[in-house]
Amino acid sequence: MDALMNFGLGMFGGVWPAVWTLVKIVLIVAPLMLGVAYLTWAERKVIGYMQVRIGPNRVGPWGLIQPIADGLKLLMKEIIVPSGSNKAIFIIAPMLAIAPALAAWAVVPFTDSLVLANIDASLLYIMAITSMGVYGIILSGWASNSKYAFLGAMRSAAQMVSYEISMGFSLICVLMVSNSLNLVDIVYAQDHGRFAEWGVGFLSWNWLPLLPMFLVYLISGVAETNRAPFDVAEGESEIVAGFHVEYSGMAFAVFFLAEYANMILVAALTSIMFLGGWLSPVGFLPDGALWLFAKMAFVLLLFLWFRATFPRYRYDQLMRLGWKVFVPVCLVWLFVVGAWMMSPLNIWK
């Protein structure tokens, strides 16, 4: 890495750090977009097999070229702007949806050295950036000048704000036990403990001592990404397709990209905060970014599994779960963790 840095400095001079950062951004975003494409393929395949169907199998072997074909089709289609819509905001809204989903990756560590920006407050940064994802949905709903889209936007706004609270509380527990806001340090904090010394490191990761918070975070993550069973913002059977009912062509595809990029982001964050990031689950295998990808794949499989299993929540049930179940659970566990850390049984020293 340093040799490459010196070579670049000799070759391009002062602009090299900027160029090198741009190269790194491309190296993160390009595989991410490929991941999004194949996540849509995996979703159709996995749900297909769960429902005893085959899923896409015509375009390429096992339907592997299907996402590329879908993308090309959407690129060719016309973007229809509804009459009476607010044109500028209508076009900006999909961009506002995808920008936070990409910007948050700046601080996600793949290993302890493989991270674009290793900043001190990376957890806060992630919370701030992901909380802005809701604007794409609200503005698309308002700018479309359509009642269904507006209903979807209103539902989404209330839902996202409610579940952000429980998400924030579960992250507060994580930062209490790891004593840091830096994602790299949060992963390292999961590396020591009695179980890690015995060589069964996966028992010392945060998911076990913070099990209620892990569940709250995972479920809130599903709700934040507007995925089934919390997909009331889209709610095909109730409000057609919710906020993106008026969108077509690439504008629609950008919403789609944003949703799946957000899913991958939540999977990565769950793996980093609760499942030990790039750490190996057992002592005799080396740590590495492959472990992080394996954990993300597992969490993403859970997302698809939920979608194939659960019926959609009714809106009042969803609000009840967020405010009357998750927030009290979080508050109680916050006290439990605080008392635990002050007691002689503290395992996070």
């Binding site: 900043i119 001190d120 407050a121 806060l124 940064y125 919370m127 701030a128 950036i129 909380s131 802005m132 809701v134 604007y135 609200i138 308002w142 507006f150 936007a153 209103m154 706004a157 209330a158 996202m160 704000v161 952000e164």
Partner: peptide, 26 residues
């Protein structure tokens, strides 16, 4: 002042203004 900078985005942009827009749109 990175804490204040992120806090204003988290609290005002991420939560307060969402609810504000919610009301204004209605």
């Amino acid at each position: 002042a990175e804490f204040l900078a992120i806090a204003i985005i988290l609290v005002y942009v991420g939560a307060v203004m969402v609810l504000f827009l919610f009301v204004v749109m209605m």
